[in-house]
Write a protein that binds this DNA or RNA. Structure first.
Lengths: 323, 323
DNA sequence: GTCAGTTCTGGAATCGTATCCAGTCCGTCG
DNA sequence: CGACGGACTGGATACGATTCCAGAACTGAC
């Protein structure tokens, strides 16, 4: 910048004013500076800029696993918006470990990110909450809830819509015994799914729903499905809390020779690529993860512009198994 | 830092020395400073540190689409290593557009990242190459090649091993007419796959292989598969260049009522989650994307430590379709 | 006791930018 | 004609760290 200033024969401060689009700059000045900039091929240093202004033009995404298709789509959706706004997106994978949640929160804080998108592994972890309470960084949650005193925007999925439709379909065809292999217990999607499913089945006159929550893992899917299959009477509808779990659940069903849909119907959460070609035929409760990511980015950008945090609810839908 | 210094009754420079693990620090000094740091809960500002030292502890990942399972696994693999080393990973999605490649390269350059992982959309684009030539940032490529004068580490997949095994299996069962729905033409995987498949089929005495390269998209998969199905004589083996393409290819095969494996056998590149439960039954040429990402990160960290760029080749394998 | 050599410490400069403040110049109005 | 306000500009300072340099204190050797 100093070199540009010398070449243009003006002060450094004037160069800065031109480049940051300040008001009070004569057009002569502007041209001289811009010419010098073009001649040298100068670009402002984002780092120095950040140090001075406090804005880093970067956002951190705290997630359970970026390799999970749903989260990857969240990230891609957010990224597409941030790109146009000049923001960089930093990713992370906690692997479901609340300590890593904490690690990344601190890491991003230390990086002075302008905002964070949060899909925490554990939304009730006291250490995490304590840290968040003393953080002044704008936040956007994706399907998570925090205590009211922590200000944050949120994109929430209305899991009930999809689940209600699914239960209506299945109960209408005579099913009464439902089970749910749920994901990690301390996050909103699991809580909401269990709640919504229980309510819907009760409303439809079914028997109390069996729910086992543990983790978003194939192993949990396998062992828990096995235990459901061993129960007498067996449930006739199995809800599966996501892709990772589904892999294990399908393996268990195949090993036990369960015929689908004759012996049991299976509904899973989230469609991923190629879901249409999975056998056995599955029902799906779907959402729009790319859209949710984009929305979270939008809510964050809003806050950067001074808006208050707000919550947006987006729907889920039911897609019955092909017959 | 000044506050810490005052509280400890020492100079700012001494605080810095203690915190950056400098040699010449007495243990008295160290303790006084560390006590003060603990008392205040002070953390160094990474931004100011970066401005002064030139190291940002961040790495940019230029990729075609972070939502693609293979690339998401690359990212996750790299991230897990970077986490321990204290680096942050910035992501991007070019969507196959070479201009966005360029955009992100510039963006990351401006961010002064310490290194970049590159899965470019187009490895021959002159503008991209020109930029890379004048860049001094350490690079690690994932299955891409650049002109020799651009120094870069690389993780290369040996596509031939998996393809050779596949062709040996299929040719051994009498197949002679092979076709390949290939991905984007200007990147190494597509080039290598076409080359390796042609060579393997020729070696096995089959007919010349038909290859159509266009993009990593379902649409390309659909239309190109349709055109292959219309050919007379039809190929009896279809190789599919990746998940996105596969979605379109399977749709085309289903619409045309092609029986698999009776009428045609299908081999696709990369197994993704739930691949085991796809119908029709598919053969796979597999690689380890998470491992590749981790390796790329390793090669980059090596360079940060002063090592020269180097190239590592990792194998692919063949998994025949279940029968 | 002196001197050289270590070991440790403090002060100042620096990284590259944004912004406050003061000052110049000019036009306008009364 | 003087005062005033507005439009620009330059210089200095700050953001928060690292690092160079010089000096203080101490050690050991002669």
């Amino acid at each position: 910048m100093r070199i540009v200033a010398e070449r243009a024969g003006v002060a450094v401060s004037s160069v800065s004013r031109v480049l940051s689009g300040h008001e009070d700059v004569s057009s002569v000045m502007r041209n001289r500076v811009l010419d010098a900039v073009a001649a040298i091929g100068y670009e402002r240093d984002l780092l120095a800029q950040s140090l001075r202004t406090g804005a880093t033009y970067s956002v951190g995404f705290v997630a359970i696993d970026v390799a999970n298709p749903v989260i990857a789509l969240n990230a891609a959706g957010a990224e597409s918006l941030f790109r146009d706004a000049g923001y960089g997106l930093l990713i992370s994978s906690s692997g479901g470990d609340p300590d890593l949640d904490l690690h990344y929160l601190r890491h991003f804080e230390q990086r002075r990110v302008d905002g964070m998108i949060l899909s925490l592994a554990h939304e009730n972890n006291p250490d995490t909450l304590a840290l968040l309470r003393q953080l002044s960084t704008p936040l956007a949650l994706i399907d998570r809830t925090l205590p009211r005193e922590i200000p944050a925007s949120a994109v929430l999925h209305d899991h009930a819509t999809g689940i209600d439709a699914a239960v209506a379909d299945l109960a209408g065809r005579g099913h009464t015994r439902f089970a749910l292999v749920n994901g990690a217990p301390h996050v909103r999607p699991s809580k909401e799914r269990a709640r919504a499913l229980r309510r819907a089945v009760r409303a439809a006159g079914g028997e109390p729903v069996t729910v086992k929550a543990r983790a978003y893992s194939a192993e949990h899917g396998y062992t828990t499905t096995m235990s459901f299959l061993a129960a007498r009477p067996r449930p006739t509808v199995l809800f599966v809390g996501g892709n990772q779990i589904l892999a294990g659940a399908l393996r268990a069903l195949a090993e036990e020779g369960v015929r689908i849909p004759e012996d049991m119907e299976v509904v899973t959460f989230d469609k991923v690529a190629l879901s249409d070609f999975l056998r056995p035929p599955l029902g799906f409760v779907t959402r729009d993860p790319r859209g949710a990511g984009r929305l979270a980015a939008e809510l964050l950008l809003e806050q950067f512009d001074g808006a208050e945090p707000r919550t947006v609810t987006v729907p889920t839908a039911y897609e019955p198994a092909p017959r």
